[in-house]
Design a protein around this nucleic acid. Structure first.
Lengths: 242, 242
DNA sequence: GAGACCTAAACGTCATACTTTTTATTGCGG
DNA sequence: CCGCAATAAAAAGTATGACGTTTAGGTCTC
Protein backbone atom coordinates (compact mmCIF):
# COMPACT_ATOMS: atom_id res chain seq x y z
CA UNK A 1 0.00 0.00 0.00
CA UNK A 2 1.30 3.38 -0.95
CA UNK A 3 1.64 5.01 2.40
CA UNK A 4 3.42 8.16 1.36
CA UNK A 5 2.43 10.62 -1.31
CA UNK A 6 4.80 10.55 -4.21
CA UNK A 7 8.06 12.36 -4.20
CA UNK A 8 8.86 13.95 -0.90
CA UNK A 9 12.58 13.12 -0.85
CA UNK A 10 14.04 16.15 -2.60
CA UNK A 11 17.35 14.40 -2.91
CA UNK A 12 19.64 15.69 -5.58
CA UNK A 13 20.20 19.17 -6.85
CA UNK A 14 17.52 18.79 -9.45
CA UNK A 15 14.75 18.09 -6.96
CA UNK A 16 15.81 20.88 -4.67
CA UNK A 17 15.80 23.53 -7.34
CA UNK A 18 12.58 22.15 -8.80
CA UNK A 19 10.83 22.20 -5.47
CA UNK A 20 11.94 25.70 -4.63
CA UNK A 21 11.01 27.11 -8.00
CA UNK A 22 7.76 25.21 -8.25
CA UNK A 23 6.72 26.34 -4.82
CA UNK A 24 7.58 29.94 -5.61
CA UNK A 25 5.69 29.94 -8.89
CA UNK A 26 2.56 28.26 -7.55
CA UNK A 27 2.64 30.59 -4.57
CA UNK A 28 2.41 33.49 -6.98
CA UNK A 29 5.86 34.91 -6.27
CA UNK A 30 6.32 35.23 -10.00
CA UNK A 31 3.07 36.56 -11.43
CA UNK A 32 1.82 35.44 -14.78
CA UNK A 33 4.05 36.71 -17.54
CA UNK A 34 7.13 36.99 -15.37
CA UNK A 35 10.30 36.12 -17.20
CA UNK A 36 13.10 34.02 -15.78
CA UNK A 37 16.44 33.43 -17.42
CA UNK A 38 18.16 30.09 -17.09
CA UNK A 39 21.52 31.74 -16.47
CA UNK A 40 20.09 33.82 -13.65
CA UNK A 41 18.51 30.78 -12.03
CA UNK A 42 21.75 28.86 -12.34
CA UNK A 43 23.56 31.68 -10.63
CA UNK A 44 20.96 32.13 -7.94
CA UNK A 45 20.99 28.49 -6.93
CA UNK A 46 24.67 28.04 -7.69
CA UNK A 47 24.12 25.10 -9.98
CA UNK A 48 25.03 24.39 -13.56
CA UNK A 49 22.83 25.27 -16.48
CA UNK A 50 22.37 21.55 -17.07
CA UNK A 51 20.40 21.23 -13.86
CA UNK A 52 18.41 24.35 -14.50
CA UNK A 53 17.45 23.22 -17.97
CA UNK A 54 16.11 19.94 -16.66
CA UNK A 55 14.14 21.77 -14.01
CA UNK A 56 12.70 24.13 -16.57
CA UNK A 57 11.72 21.21 -18.77
CA UNK A 58 9.78 19.64 -15.93
CA UNK A 59 8.09 22.92 -15.02
CA UNK A 60 7.24 23.26 -18.67
CA UNK A 61 5.70 19.79 -18.72
CA UNK A 62 3.50 20.92 -15.84
CA UNK A 63 2.52 23.91 -17.92
CA UNK A 64 3.67 26.23 -15.17
CA UNK A 65 6.06 27.97 -17.51
CA UNK A 66 6.80 28.30 -21.18
CA UNK A 67 10.31 28.50 -22.56
CA UNK A 68 10.89 30.45 -25.73
CA UNK A 69 14.02 31.45 -27.52
CA UNK A 70 15.30 34.95 -27.20
CA UNK A 71 12.72 35.75 -24.54
CA UNK A 72 13.30 33.34 -21.66
CA UNK A 73 11.15 31.26 -19.39
CA UNK A 74 7.79 32.92 -18.85
CA UNK A 75 5.29 32.00 -16.17
CA UNK A 76 1.96 30.86 -17.56
CA UNK A 77 -1.49 31.83 -16.37
CA UNK A 78 -2.90 29.66 -13.62
CA UNK A 79 -5.65 28.51 -15.98
CA UNK A 80 -3.03 26.64 -17.96
CA UNK A 81 -1.37 24.82 -15.09
CA UNK A 82 -1.69 21.05 -14.90
CA UNK A 83 -3.55 21.27 -11.63
CA UNK A 84 -3.90 17.51 -11.39
CA UNK A 85 -0.17 17.01 -11.15
CA UNK A 86 0.47 15.67 -7.65
CA UNK A 87 3.45 17.91 -7.22
CA UNK A 88 1.55 21.00 -8.27
CA UNK A 89 -1.15 20.05 -5.79
CA UNK A 90 1.38 19.63 -3.04
CA UNK A 91 3.00 22.95 -3.80
CA UNK A 92 -0.28 24.78 -3.80
CA UNK A 93 -1.41 23.11 -0.60
CA UNK A 94 1.85 24.13 1.02
CA UNK A 95 1.67 27.72 -0.15
CA UNK A 96 -0.59 30.71 0.06
CA UNK A 97 -3.01 29.16 -2.39
CA UNK A 98 -3.99 26.52 0.10
CA UNK A 99 -7.59 27.62 0.86
CA UNK A 100 -8.57 27.93 -2.76
CA UNK A 101 -6.91 24.65 -3.63
CA UNK A 102 -8.57 22.90 -0.73
CA UNK A 103 -11.96 24.08 -1.91
CA UNK A 104 -11.39 22.95 -5.49
CA UNK A 105 -10.22 19.55 -4.40
CA UNK A 106 -13.07 19.05 -1.98
CA UNK A 107 -15.61 19.87 -4.65
CA UNK A 108 -13.90 17.43 -6.99
CA UNK A 109 -13.92 14.82 -4.30
CA UNK A 110 -17.60 15.38 -3.58
CA UNK A 111 -18.33 14.71 -7.24
CA UNK A 112 -16.16 11.66 -7.62
CA UNK A 113 -16.48 9.69 -4.43
CA UNK A 114 -20.20 8.91 -4.59
CA UNK A 115 -19.82 7.50 -8.08
CA UNK A 116 -16.73 5.62 -7.00
CA UNK A 117 -18.62 4.11 -4.08
CA UNK A 118 -21.38 2.99 -6.40
CA UNK A 119 -18.88 1.29 -8.65
CA UNK A 120 -17.12 -0.22 -5.66
CA UNK A 121 -20.39 -1.85 -4.61
CA UNK A 122 -20.38 -3.61 -7.96
CA UNK A 123 -16.71 -4.39 -8.35
CA UNK A 124 -15.17 -4.76 -4.92
CA UNK A 125 -13.43 -8.06 -4.25
CA UNK A 126 -14.13 -9.92 -1.02
CA UNK A 127 -10.72 -8.81 0.23
CA UNK A 128 -11.56 -5.19 -0.44
CA UNK A 129 -14.90 -5.59 1.31
CA UNK A 130 -13.13 -7.03 4.32
CA UNK A 131 -10.59 -4.24 4.33
CA UNK A 132 -13.34 -1.68 4.08
CA UNK A 133 -15.21 -3.15 7.03
CA UNK A 134 -12.00 -3.19 8.98
CA UNK A 135 -11.44 0.49 8.25
CA UNK A 136 -14.97 1.37 9.28
CA UNK A 137 -14.61 -0.57 12.52
CA UNK A 138 -11.32 1.16 13.16
CA UNK A 139 -13.02 4.50 12.71
CA UNK A 140 -15.71 3.56 15.18
CA UNK A 141 -13.15 2.31 17.69
CA UNK A 142 -11.11 5.50 17.56
CA UNK A 143 -13.97 7.94 17.24
CA UNK A 144 -13.94 8.85 20.91
CA UNK A 145 -11.28 9.84 23.35
CA UNK A 146 -8.96 12.23 21.54
CA UNK A 147 -7.58 9.63 19.19
CA UNK A 148 -7.77 11.82 16.13
CA UNK A 149 -4.47 10.64 14.74
CA UNK A 150 -5.51 7.01 14.61
CA UNK A 151 -8.97 7.94 13.38
CA UNK A 152 -7.45 9.86 10.50
CA UNK A 153 -5.44 6.87 9.38
CA UNK A 154 -8.53 4.68 9.24
CA UNK A 155 -10.46 7.40 7.48
CA UNK A 156 -7.80 7.77 4.80
CA UNK A 157 -7.54 4.03 4.33
CA UNK A 158 -11.30 3.79 4.00
CA UNK A 159 -11.51 6.30 1.19
CA UNK A 160 -8.51 4.81 -0.54
CA UNK A 161 -10.13 1.39 -0.59
CA UNK A 162 -13.32 2.84 -2.02
CA UNK A 163 -11.47 4.64 -4.79
CA UNK A 164 -9.36 1.60 -5.61
CA UNK A 165 -12.29 -0.79 -5.48
CA UNK A 166 -14.16 1.32 -8.01
CA UNK A 167 -11.95 -0.29 -10.61
CA UNK A 168 -11.42 3.05 -12.29
CA UNK A 169 -7.82 4.12 -12.51
CA UNK A 170 -8.68 7.82 -12.66
CA UNK A 171 -10.58 7.53 -9.42
CA UNK A 172 -7.89 5.42 -7.82
CA UNK A 173 -5.31 8.10 -8.48
CA UNK A 174 -7.29 10.56 -6.36
CA UNK A 175 -6.45 8.59 -3.25
CA UNK A 176 -3.52 10.81 -2.44
CA UNK A 177 -5.64 13.90 -2.93
CA UNK A 178 -8.26 12.69 -0.51
CA UNK A 179 -5.57 11.74 1.97
CA UNK A 180 -4.16 15.23 1.72
CA UNK A 181 -7.54 16.83 2.27
CA UNK A 182 -8.37 14.70 5.26
CA UNK A 183 -4.98 15.26 6.81
CA UNK A 184 -5.23 19.00 6.33
CA UNK A 185 -8.68 19.03 7.83
CA UNK A 186 -7.60 17.21 10.97
CA UNK A 187 -4.56 19.38 11.40
CA UNK A 188 -6.19 22.75 10.84
CA UNK A 189 -9.71 22.41 12.02
CA UNK A 190 -11.00 20.42 14.90
CA UNK A 191 -7.80 19.26 16.48
CA UNK A 192 -9.53 18.94 19.82
CA UNK A 193 -13.03 17.64 19.20
CA UNK A 194 -13.81 14.05 18.46
CA UNK A 195 -15.14 13.45 14.95
CA UNK A 196 -18.82 13.86 14.22
CA UNK A 197 -20.58 10.62 15.25
CA UNK A 198 -22.99 11.00 12.33
CA UNK A 199 -20.08 10.90 9.89
CA UNK A 200 -18.77 7.75 11.47
CA UNK A 201 -22.13 6.09 11.09
CA UNK A 202 -22.29 7.06 7.46
CA UNK A 203 -18.95 5.41 6.79
CA UNK A 204 -20.15 2.21 8.42
CA UNK A 205 -23.23 2.30 6.24
CA UNK A 206 -21.16 2.72 3.11
CA UNK A 207 -19.09 -0.29 4.05
CA UNK A 208 -22.29 -2.25 4.55
CA UNK A 209 -23.76 -1.18 1.25
CA UNK A 210 -20.59 -2.07 -0.63
CA UNK A 211 -20.42 -5.45 1.06
CA UNK A 212 -24.01 -6.13 0.08
CA UNK A 213 -23.45 -4.92 -3.45
CA UNK A 214 -26.05 -2.19 -3.05
CA UNK A 215 -24.67 0.36 -5.46
CA UNK A 216 -27.49 2.85 -5.15
CA UNK A 217 -27.29 3.01 -1.40
CA UNK A 218 -23.50 3.17 -1.39
CA UNK A 219 -23.63 6.13 -3.74
CA UNK A 220 -26.38 7.83 -1.79
CA UNK A 221 -24.74 7.55 1.59
CA UNK A 222 -21.37 8.61 0.21
CA UNK A 223 -23.08 11.64 -1.22
CA UNK A 224 -24.20 12.50 2.28
CA UNK A 225 -20.61 12.28 3.44
CA UNK A 226 -19.66 14.60 0.61
CA UNK A 227 -22.33 17.10 1.58
CA UNK A 228 -20.89 17.10 5.05
CA UNK A 229 -17.40 17.75 3.73
CA UNK A 230 -18.63 20.69 1.69
CA UNK A 231 -20.55 22.13 4.63
CA UNK A 232 -17.48 21.81 6.78
CA UNK A 233 -15.51 23.69 4.19
CA UNK A 234 -17.96 26.55 4.17
CA UNK A 235 -17.54 26.96 7.89
CA UNK A 236 -13.78 26.82 7.77
CA UNK A 237 -13.12 28.82 4.64
CA UNK A 238 -16.14 30.78 3.49
CA UNK A 239 -16.58 30.89 -0.25
CA UNK A 240 -14.70 33.96 -1.50
CA UNK A 241 -17.56 35.02 -3.76
CA UNK A 242 -16.44 32.38 -6.23
CA UNK B 1 -10.83 30.48 -25.96
CA UNK B 2 -8.39 27.61 -25.92
CA UNK B 3 -9.28 25.90 -29.13
CA UNK B 4 -6.45 23.39 -29.31
CA UNK B 5 -5.43 20.84 -26.73
CA UNK B 6 -2.08 21.64 -25.24
CA UNK B 7 1.15 20.70 -26.88
CA UNK B 8 0.63 19.21 -30.28
CA UNK B 9 3.62 20.83 -32.01
CA UNK B 10 6.41 18.37 -31.32
CA UNK B 11 8.92 20.90 -32.52
CA UNK B 12 12.44 20.44 -31.37
CA UNK B 13 14.44 17.33 -30.70
CA UNK B 14 13.29 17.16 -27.13
CA UNK B 15 9.62 16.95 -27.99
CA UNK B 16 10.16 14.39 -30.69
CA UNK B 17 12.08 12.00 -28.48
CA UNK B 18 9.66 12.60 -25.61
CA UNK B 19 6.65 11.87 -27.76
CA UNK B 20 8.11 8.73 -29.23
CA UNK B 21 9.25 7.35 -25.90
CA UNK B 22 6.09 8.38 -24.06
CA UNK B 23 3.92 6.78 -26.69
CA UNK B 24 5.95 3.59 -26.60
CA UNK B 25 5.85 3.32 -22.83
CA UNK B 26 2.15 4.05 -22.47
CA UNK B 27 1.43 1.62 -25.27
CA UNK B 28 3.12 -1.07 -23.22
CA UNK B 29 6.07 -1.61 -25.53
CA UNK B 30 8.27 -1.55 -22.47
CA UNK B 31 6.53 -3.59 -19.78
CA UNK B 32 6.72 -2.59 -16.17
CA UNK B 33 10.21 -3.03 -14.82
CA UNK B 34 11.92 -2.67 -18.18
CA UNK B 35 15.22 -0.89 -17.98
CA UNK B 36 16.39 1.76 -20.39
CA UNK B 37 19.83 3.32 -20.44
CA UNK B 38 20.27 6.94 -21.38
CA UNK B 39 23.25 6.15 -23.57
CA UNK B 40 21.27 3.59 -25.50
CA UNK B 41 18.41 6.00 -26.03
CA UNK B 42 20.81 8.71 -27.12
CA UNK B 43 22.28 6.34 -29.64
CA UNK B 44 18.95 5.06 -30.85
CA UNK B 45 17.57 8.51 -31.53
CA UNK B 46 20.93 9.93 -32.54
CA UNK B 47 20.75 12.80 -30.09
CA UNK B 48 23.01 13.96 -27.30
CA UNK B 49 22.72 12.72 -23.78
CA UNK B 50 21.62 16.20 -22.76
CA UNK B 51 18.40 15.82 -24.69
CA UNK B 52 17.80 12.33 -23.42
CA UNK B 53 18.31 13.38 -19.84
CA UNK B 54 15.74 16.14 -20.16
CA UNK B 55 13.29 13.72 -21.71
CA UNK B 56 13.85 11.23 -18.92
CA UNK B 57 13.32 13.94 -16.35
CA UNK B 58 9.94 14.77 -17.86
CA UNK B 59 8.91 11.12 -18.08
CA UNK B 60 9.99 10.82 -14.48
CA UNK B 61 7.81 13.77 -13.52
CA UNK B 62 4.90 11.94 -15.10
CA UNK B 63 5.78 8.94 -13.00
CA UNK B 64 6.08 6.80 -16.09
CA UNK B 65 9.66 5.90 -15.23
CA UNK B 66 12.06 6.03 -12.36
CA UNK B 67 15.72 6.85 -12.78
CA UNK B 68 18.25 5.34 -10.39
CA UNK B 69 21.98 5.35 -10.35
CA UNK B 70 23.83 2.29 -11.44
CA UNK B 71 20.62 0.65 -12.59
CA UNK B 72 19.11 2.88 -15.26
CA UNK B 73 15.69 4.15 -16.14
CA UNK B 74 13.02 1.66 -15.17
CA UNK B 75 9.42 1.72 -16.33
CA UNK B 76 6.94 2.05 -13.49
CA UNK B 77 3.69 0.15 -13.02
CA UNK B 78 0.68 1.71 -14.67
CA UNK B 79 -0.88 2.26 -11.25
CA UNK B 80 1.78 4.87 -10.58
CA UNK B 81 1.41 6.87 -13.76
CA UNK B 82 0.09 10.40 -13.55
CA UNK B 83 -2.93 9.50 -15.60
CA UNK B 84 -4.30 13.03 -15.43
CA UNK B 85 -1.36 14.47 -17.32
CA UNK B 86 -2.78 15.67 -20.64
CA UNK B 87 0.11 14.25 -22.54
CA UNK B 88 -0.24 10.85 -20.93
CA UNK B 89 -3.92 10.92 -21.80
CA UNK B 90 -3.15 11.79 -25.40
CA UNK B 91 -0.57 9.05 -25.68
CA UNK B 92 -2.88 6.45 -24.26
CA UNK B 93 -5.73 7.55 -26.47
CA UNK B 94 -3.47 7.29 -29.47
CA UNK B 95 -2.17 3.86 -28.59
CA UNK B 96 -3.43 0.38 -27.94
CA UNK B 97 -4.73 1.40 -24.54
CA UNK B 98 -7.40 3.56 -26.14
CA UNK B 99 -10.52 1.52 -25.22
CA UNK B 100 -9.61 1.21 -21.59
CA UNK B 101 -8.63 4.86 -21.37
CA UNK B 102 -11.82 5.94 -23.05
CA UNK B 103 -13.87 4.04 -20.53
CA UNK B 104 -12.00 5.47 -17.55
CA UNK B 105 -12.39 8.98 -18.85
CA UNK B 106 -16.07 8.58 -19.64
CA UNK B 107 -16.77 7.33 -16.14
CA UNK B 108 -14.84 10.26 -14.71
CA UNK B 109 -16.79 12.60 -16.91
CA UNK B 110 -20.09 11.08 -15.87
CA UNK B 111 -19.19 11.77 -12.26
CA UNK B 112 -17.94 15.30 -12.73
CA UNK B 113 -20.20 16.91 -15.30
CA UNK B 114 -23.47 16.72 -13.37
CA UNK B 115 -21.91 18.40 -10.37
CA UNK B 116 -20.26 20.94 -12.64
CA UNK B 117 -23.60 21.72 -14.25
CA UNK B 118 -25.16 22.24 -10.85
CA UNK B 119 -22.42 24.67 -9.91
CA UNK B 120 -22.70 26.37 -13.27
CA UNK B 121 -26.37 27.04 -12.58
CA UNK B 122 -25.29 28.98 -9.49
CA UNK B 123 -22.18 30.66 -10.80
CA UNK B 124 -22.55 31.20 -14.52
CA UNK B 125 -22.21 34.78 -15.71
CA UNK B 126 -24.79 36.20 -18.12
CA UNK B 127 -22.18 35.93 -20.87
CA UNK B 128 -21.66 32.26 -20.13
CA UNK B 129 -25.41 31.67 -20.13
CA UNK B 130 -25.66 33.32 -23.51
CA UNK B 131 -22.79 31.28 -24.85
CA UNK B 132 -24.37 28.12 -23.53
CA UNK B 133 -27.68 28.88 -25.18
CA UNK B 134 -25.88 29.62 -28.39
CA UNK B 135 -24.12 26.26 -28.25
CA UNK B 136 -27.38 24.45 -27.60
CA UNK B 137 -29.05 26.21 -30.48
CA UNK B 138 -26.12 25.33 -32.69
CA UNK B 139 -26.52 21.70 -31.72
CA UNK B 140 -30.19 21.78 -32.61
CA UNK B 141 -29.49 23.46 -35.93
CA UNK B 142 -26.88 20.92 -36.96
CA UNK B 143 -28.54 17.85 -35.53
CA UNK B 144 -30.00 16.74 -38.83
CA UNK B 145 -28.60 16.29 -42.25
CA UNK B 146 -25.20 14.69 -41.86
CA UNK B 147 -23.59 17.72 -40.28
CA UNK B 148 -21.77 15.75 -37.64
CA UNK B 149 -18.64 17.84 -37.86
CA UNK B 150 -20.40 21.05 -37.04
CA UNK B 151 -22.52 19.36 -34.42
CA UNK B 152 -19.42 18.09 -32.69
CA UNK B 153 -17.96 21.57 -32.43
CA UNK B 154 -21.07 22.90 -30.73
CA UNK B 155 -21.19 19.89 -28.47
CA UNK B 156 -17.60 20.38 -27.35
CA UNK B 157 -18.12 24.09 -26.82
CA UNK B 158 -21.22 23.37 -24.78
CA UNK B 159 -19.46 21.08 -22.35
CA UNK B 160 -16.49 23.39 -22.11
CA UNK B 161 -18.72 26.28 -21.09
CA UNK B 162 -20.39 24.16 -18.44
CA UNK B 163 -17.08 23.07 -16.97
CA UNK B 164 -15.69 26.61 -17.02
CA UNK B 165 -18.84 28.15 -15.62
CA UNK B 166 -18.72 25.80 -12.66
CA UNK B 167 -16.04 28.08 -11.29
CA UNK B 168 -13.94 25.10 -10.25
CA UNK B 169 -10.50 25.01 -11.78
CA UNK B 170 -10.22 21.24 -11.49
CA UNK B 171 -13.42 20.83 -13.46
CA UNK B 172 -12.41 23.43 -15.99
CA UNK B 173 -9.23 21.56 -16.77
CA UNK B 174 -11.26 18.55 -17.90
CA UNK B 175 -12.51 20.46 -20.91
CA UNK B 176 -9.81 19.00 -23.12
CA UNK B 177 -10.61 15.51 -21.89
CA UNK B 178 -14.27 15.87 -22.75
CA UNK B 179 -13.37 17.30 -26.13
CA UNK B 180 -11.17 14.31 -26.79
CA UNK B 181 -13.89 11.87 -25.81
CA UNK B 182 -16.52 13.53 -27.95
CA UNK B 183 -14.21 13.75 -30.91
CA UNK B 184 -13.26 10.12 -30.59
CA UNK B 185 -16.88 9.11 -30.35
CA UNK B 186 -17.85 10.94 -33.50
CA UNK B 187 -14.91 9.58 -35.40
CA UNK B 188 -15.20 5.97 -34.38
CA UNK B 189 -18.82 5.32 -33.83
CA UNK B 190 -21.74 6.78 -35.59
CA UNK B 191 -20.03 8.61 -38.38
CA UNK B 192 -23.12 8.26 -40.52
CA UNK B 193 -26.15 8.61 -38.27
CA UNK B 194 -27.43 11.92 -37.04
CA UNK B 195 -27.07 12.40 -33.28
CA UNK B 196 -29.77 11.10 -30.97
CA UNK B 197 -32.58 13.71 -30.84
CA UNK B 198 -33.16 12.92 -27.19
CA UNK B 199 -29.59 13.92 -26.36
CA UNK B 200 -30.02 17.19 -28.18
CA UNK B 201 -33.13 17.96 -26.17
CA UNK B 202 -31.32 17.20 -22.93
CA UNK B 203 -28.60 19.68 -23.80
CA UNK B 204 -31.19 22.36 -24.47
CA UNK B 205 -32.76 21.63 -21.12
CA UNK B 206 -29.44 21.95 -19.34
CA UNK B 207 -28.91 25.34 -20.94
CA UNK B 208 -32.35 26.38 -19.78
CA UNK B 209 -31.79 25.17 -16.24
CA UNK B 210 -28.46 26.95 -15.97
CA UNK B 211 -29.96 30.14 -17.33
CA UNK B 212 -32.73 29.95 -14.75
CA UNK B 213 -30.29 29.16 -11.96
CA UNK B 214 -31.99 25.83 -11.31
CA UNK B 215 -29.04 23.87 -9.97
CA UNK B 216 -30.95 20.73 -9.11
CA UNK B 217 -32.47 20.40 -12.54
CA UNK B 218 -29.22 21.22 -14.30
CA UNK B 219 -27.49 18.46 -12.37
CA UNK B 220 -30.29 16.02 -12.92
CA UNK B 221 -30.53 16.48 -16.64
CA UNK B 222 -26.77 16.41 -17.06
CA UNK B 223 -26.78 13.13 -15.20
CA UNK B 224 -29.14 11.80 -17.84
CA UNK B 225 -26.69 12.85 -20.51
CA UNK B 226 -23.97 11.04 -18.60
CA UNK B 227 -26.05 7.89 -18.38
CA UNK B 228 -26.44 8.05 -22.13
CA UNK B 229 -22.71 8.39 -22.62
CA UNK B 230 -22.05 5.37 -20.44
CA UNK B 231 -24.66 3.29 -22.23
CA UNK B 232 -23.13 4.26 -25.53
CA UNK B 233 -19.79 3.11 -24.26
CA UNK B 234 -21.12 -0.29 -23.32
CA UNK B 235 -22.37 -0.79 -26.85
CA UNK B 236 -19.14 0.34 -28.43
CA UNK B 237 -16.63 -1.28 -26.07
CA UNK B 238 -18.16 -3.90 -23.82
CA UNK B 239 -16.86 -3.88 -20.27
CA UNK B 240 -13.88 -6.25 -20.15
CA UNK B 241 -15.06 -7.89 -16.93
CA UNK B 242 -13.80 -4.94 -14.98
C1' DG C 1 6.24 56.32 -41.55
C1' DA C 2 6.50 51.64 -43.30
C1' DG C 3 9.02 47.90 -44.62
C1' DA C 4 13.29 45.25 -45.18
C1' DC C 5 17.52 44.17 -42.94
C1' DC C 6 20.68 43.24 -39.26
C1' DT C 7 22.22 42.38 -34.60
C1' DA C 8 22.33 40.41 -30.36
C1' DA C 9 20.01 37.92 -26.61
C1' DA C 10 18.38 33.75 -24.94
C1' DC C 11 17.33 29.12 -25.42
C1' DG C 12 18.62 24.51 -27.87
C1' DT C 13 22.02 21.10 -28.80
C1' DC C 14 26.35 18.78 -28.54
C1' DA C 15 30.70 16.87 -26.62
C1' DT C 16 33.54 15.79 -22.83
C1' DA C 17 35.28 15.32 -18.40
C1' DC C 18 34.55 14.36 -13.80
C1' DT C 19 31.72 12.97 -9.44
C1' DT C 20 28.64 10.13 -6.83
C1' DT C 21 25.92 6.48 -5.78
C1' DT C 22 24.89 1.74 -5.95
C1' DT C 23 25.27 -2.90 -7.32
C1' DA C 24 27.78 -6.99 -7.87
C1' DT C 25 31.88 -9.48 -7.48
C1' DT C 26 35.71 -10.97 -5.33
C1' DG C 27 38.30 -12.56 -1.57
C1' DC C 28 39.22 -13.32 3.09
C1' DG C 29 38.17 -15.48 7.43
C1' DG C 30 35.30 -18.36 10.12
C1' DC D 1 30.29 -23.88 2.74
C1' DC D 2 28.72 -19.45 4.29
C1' DG D 3 28.88 -14.71 5.61
C1' DC D 4 30.91 -10.34 5.72
C1' DA D 5 33.81 -6.78 4.08
C1' DA D 6 36.70 -4.56 0.64
C1' DT D 7 36.72 -3.35 -4.05
C1' DA D 8 35.71 -2.46 -8.80
C1' DA D 9 32.71 -1.09 -12.28
C1' DA D 10 28.40 0.69 -14.24
C1' DA D 11 25.25 4.17 -14.84
C1' DA D 12 23.23 8.34 -13.65
C1' DG D 13 24.31 13.16 -11.82
C1' DT D 14 26.83 17.44 -12.42
C1' DA D 15 29.83 20.90 -14.50
C1' DT D 16 31.81 23.39 -18.33
C1' DG D 17 32.51 25.32 -22.77
C1' DA D 18 31.42 25.75 -27.46
C1' DC D 19 28.40 26.39 -31.15
C1' DG D 20 23.67 26.46 -33.58
C1' DT D 21 19.02 28.49 -34.05
C1' DT D 22 15.39 31.36 -33.42
C1' DT D 23 13.46 35.79 -32.86
C1' DA D 24 12.54 40.33 -30.54
C1' DG D 25 13.76 44.68 -31.43
C1' DG D 26 16.47 48.17 -33.22
C1' DT D 27 18.29 50.39 -37.48
C1' DC D 28 18.56 51.89 -41.92
C1' DT D 29 16.73 53.10 -46.20
C1' DC D 30 13.25 54.71 -49.25
Amino acid sequence: MTTAGQGLPSQGLHSQVLDTLGLAITAGDYPRGSVLRTDEIAQRFDVSRTVVREVVRVLESMHLVESRRRVGVTVRAIEEWNVYDPRVIRWRLAGSDRPRQLRSLTVLRSAVEPVAAGLAARNATPEQCAELTECALGMVATSRGQRLGEYLQHDIAFHRVILNASGNEMFARLGDVVAEILTGRTRHQVMFDDPDPAAVTLHVQVAEAVREGDAVRAEEVTREIAVGALAELDVLAPDPAR
